[in-house]
Amino acid sequence: MTTIGFGELKKGMRAKIAETPEPKDQVLRLYEMGLVPGTEFKVVKIAPLGDPIEIDLRGYRLCLRKQEMAGFEVEILG
């Protein structure tokens, strides 16, 4: 299983969260938004200036900054 960093995702990719940093403070909040290990999502769009990244997960759309997703490793599904 090969994983890449969240920031390396491209538009249209489907991916699954593989590894995350320890869930406290900032990362806990991301967990609470549904970004827990095993969650599948799709990259909808990357903002024109390269950041943030809009993803579709659990039936809703969320934008995340690459920097704040540092440490999240994802597995590409397609």
Binding site: P52, R61, R65, E68
Partner: peptide, 11 residues
């Protein structure tokens, strides 16, 4: 102090 991630939902 602690800064929360910038969470932007696109409804």
């Amino acid at each position: 102090g602690k800064r929360l991630p910038f969470l932007l939902e696109l409804p």
